[in-house]
Design a protein around this nucleic acid. Structure first.
Length: 497
RNA sequence: GGGCUAGUAACUCAGUGGUAGAGUAUCUGCCUUUUAAGCAGAGAGUCGAUGGUUCGAAUCCAUCCUGGCUCACCA
């Protein structure tokens, strides 16, 4: 018999013994009167009046000592020590106590008191099992040394942590707190938008055509309709249809799916918000971006400076705004603002930046930007004046044939947001999508497809609109000081073992 | 996809060619104020998988699987 099976067998034997005692190891309810935090908050009072309470939680430490025993019980608010004496709880309850394992859900009734060693505890008068655990949960021990918490045998194997996230959450409290921060961030994002007149909407995840970004999709099949459906790569085109429909301020928070590579900042499914606002310009969208993220920092973290991997990131408004070619010039001394293809290509070759034969000047400029500028943008920076060539859904910049009204937000060398003045000229939009389609025929698998239904909607008329997308996972990484997206997604995509 | 690196007990890890190890957890015994409780003893392993070299492989070689870091790609 394997060891694991042996450990399980021991627990199943205990389960049977409990049942033989007439005890239901999985009762349907509990008589909990207090959550643990209520005990700690009222410690002096409860100890003084020897308050009798009933608490429930998971048993995560046990120190047995003959006819007496100590244990630690945790619920989602805290931890309290149990003290069980045979002569206090009686034969039968002590028998139950002896059959408990680490990881079991237990209910304890007893009075609050302070032990001889000074630890706040419950002196049990009744022990009830609420849920028997059949597997050994790894034990992490802690000790306070010189005021610092030392941890022993930490559950630290990264692969195991992701695959068995429930154990990670159970054993690594800071992980749980990351996800609490994540939830608060999304709540505060909603609060801000709701309080500023934005309506939250839901659009299809299963789409007959995909669009709104350059990416390869996941494809599935609808049996009844006998047709392919695509998991959305962006919410953009449906939200714009809603702008045609008369909404002036809308947003959607949800998962997008991109069938692409995975790395520290990319997971195949990720969470984004897209926000659309009518009758505003790009400056308005930059203000909105600053305001939303600043609000999240102030309400969730309580400060506008975030220490990320040793660097202080200041979210104090306003954030730097600079054009793409300006930033390239700043980093390299090279001026690409004239979009002179030969000149730019020569510079790329000189700098060993790989160039695609078919690439136009706009594409090369973004290559230069990605290589020389992006990693340098540590403090929040709005990069403006994107090449039209790489922005098929953004409105052209007046008087600048090569540029569109678009910005991306960069912090700590990563992209956090992308926004445009949305293209509401249906004829221009058709031409741009058809150009994308040509790229597609030439083998660009990430080029946009022509969505006739979307173009038809645009033909009915869309107001001048600013659109903004923000990657929420990356923002959570920033707020929780994590360098891997897997740390902020509860169940990151993994290959099966 | 390339380079580097890791996979040994439930957890954390030692172990550079000669009988598979430690701490924790588990089990047994002792213990009525412990807190990384303690003391004594015991059980527990397909050493990621497959093939090879060798008298002999956790260890050397090859291939593969699953992670991590990094570069490339992508956005």
């Amino acid at each position: 018999m394997g060891n694991m099976n042996q450990l399980i067998a021991v627990r199943r034997e205990k389960l049977t013994k409990l049942q033989d005692l007439g005890i239901d190891p999985y009762p349907g309810h509990s008589e909990r009167t207090h959550k643990i935090i209520q005990l700690t908050e009222n410690q002096d009072e409860f100890v003084a009046e020897q308050k009798v309470v009933t608490v429930a939680g998971r048993l995560n430490a046990m120190r047995r000592q003959g006819k007496v025993g100590f244990g630690n019980l945790s619920d989602d608010t805290g931890k309290i020590q149990l003290f069980v004496r045979k002569d206090k709880v009686g034969e039968e309850n002590f028998e139950i106590f002896k059959l408990l394992d680490l990881g079991d859900f237990v209910q304890i009734t007893g009075e609050c008191f302070i032990t001889q060693r000074g630890e706040y505890s419950i002196r049990a008068s009744q022990v009830t099992i609420l849920g028997k655990s059949l597997r050994t949960i790894p034990v992490v021990k802690e000790k306070i040394v010189d005021g610092k918490k030392m941890r022993y045998d930490e559950f630290s194997d990264i692969e195991l942590r992701y695959r068995k996230r429930y154990l990670d959450l159970l054993l690594n409290p800071e992980i749980k707190s990351n996800f609490e921060i994540r939830a608060k961030m999304i709540r505060e994002m909603r609060n801000y938008l709701d309080n500023n007149g934005f309506l939250e909407v839901e659009t299809p995840i299963l789409q007959p055509l995909y669009g709104g970004a350059n990416a390869r999709p996941f494809i599935t099949h609808h049996n009844t309709l006998d047709m392919p459906l695509y998991l959305r790569i962006a919410t953009e085109l449906y939200l714009k249809r809603l702008m045609v429909g008369g909404f002036e301020r809308i947003y959607e928070i949800g998962k997008n799916f991109r069938n692409e590579g995975m790395d520290k900042t990319h997971n195949p499914e990720f969470t984004a918000v897209e926000i659309y606002q009518a009758y505003t310009n790009l400056d308005g969208m930059m203000d909105l971006t600053e305001n939303v993220i600043h609000h999240m920092a102030m309400t969730v973290l309580g400060e506008e400076t975030i220490n990320f991997q040793g660097t202080d990131i200041s979210l104090a408004k306003p954030w730097r705004r600079a054009s793409m070619t300006e930033l390239i010039k700043e980093q390299t001394g090279f001026d690409a603002s004239d979009f002179d293809l030969e000149k730019i290509r020569a510079f790329c070759v000189e700098k060993n930046v790989e160039v695609d034969e078919n690439a136009g000047p706009g594409k090369l400029i973004t290559e230069l930007f990605d290589t020389f500028v992006e990693p340098k943008l540590i403090q929040p920076t709005f990069v403006t004046d994107y090449p039209k060539e790489v922005s098929p859904l953004a409105k052209g910049k007046p008087g600048e044939p090569n540029l569109v009204e678009r910005f991306e937000l960069f912090i700590v060398g990563n992209e956090y947001g992308n926004a445009f003045t949305e293209l509401n000229d249906a004829i221009d939009q058709r031409a741009r999508l058809e150009a994308q389609s040509k790229l597609r025929e030439m083998g660009d698998v990430e080029a946009n497809v022509v969505d006739e239904d979307f173009l038809e909607a645009l033909e009915y008329g869309m107001p001048p609109t600013g659109g903004l997308g923000i990657g929420i996972d990356r923002l959570v990484m920033l707020f929780t000081n994590n360098t891997s997206i897997k740390e902020v997604i509860l169940f990151p995509t993994m290959k099966p073992e």
